[in-house]
Design a protein around this nucleic acid. Sequence first.
DNA 1: AAGGGAACGAAATAATATTTCGTTTTCCCA
DNA 2: TGGGAAAACGAAATATTATTTCGTTCCCTT
Lengths: 154, 154
Amino acid sequence: MSIADLDDIDRSILAELQQDGRITNVELARRVGISAPPCLRRVRRLEEMGLIQGYHATLAPAMLGWSISFFVLVGLDSQKGAVLAEFEALVAEWPETRECHMIRGGEDFLLRLMARDAEHQNRLTRDLIEVAHVVRVQTFQVIRTSCERAGVPL
Amino acid sequence: MSIADLDDIDRSILAELQQDGRITNVELARRVGISAPPCLRRVRRLEEMGLIQGYHATLAPAMLGWSISFFVLVGLDSQKGAVLAEFEALVAEWPETRECHMIRGGEDFLLRLMARDAEHQNRLTRDLIEVAHVVRVQTFQVIRTSCERAGVPL
DNA sequence: AAGGGAACGAAATAATATTTCGTTTTCCCA
DNA sequence: TGGGAAAACGAAATATTATTTCGTTCCCTT
């Protein structure tokens, strides 16, 4: 039940499903060079092993009214576990929070948020500054994204 | 052909597919309260409109040997269009590059990279510094990710 | 109120997923 | 190195799902 149990066919399956999560099992089997039943068994096994965590449609943010994406470096006045966990729990409740990474290298957290417009973004930034223990906030507005690959290199 | 053409059922479909991209059309139709044929027609329409850009399996990076994720703030010595485009094209060729955002707010780019181990990460960071026009590099190593939501708020 | 376009849904058909089971391959271990 | 068990395979049968067809309904406009 580890990476060692993966052969080339498994890796091909993962690559194909990462590329197209709605490919049919028949087509997937054809591409990786085995018949449908064992292919499906492999997919189920990869899911059960937790290697495949789920399947998601990728939507177009701008077309849905979420035209602003921005990152925020956040510094807290304490690195105690309870303070960090409290911060994480609070920002995770905001629907605009897409990612919250605890980091090493200058500040404590790097967030990615989405906003419907500039006013919305301003409100989010102000709200963030008001959060308990937050002492520094540095915003990086995304102008354009030239590369956005889902998942892992395969 | 815009967001105005979306009704509540369309939004429900998008939310369901963002949550589970491999749900069957029958189940999707049941959840959004219509029968299968019109549901499928709506999905196809949303795909053609570009609102649904694709479907992807979400894999477990650590289990596949990609245990390190890190962000890098990159500053260049020029903001000329050709220089920016050249940088984007170069880092996009690296398989370890997952995201490359041009940003406003302190530096020029924010990258997200993945590495197999610390040595690999060091090599990537050194390579980045050697890239033409790069004058500043600040690395933020991801210690833990408490929130990672795909897509947009719905 | 009548006409027309768009969307719906039941039913039929096509395609795909999944199970079953006999065969082949792989991998230990004597 | 040979034998045997376990695992994986794939053809075929079955179950489920996707997709098309087509008659009906619902609006919306005039």
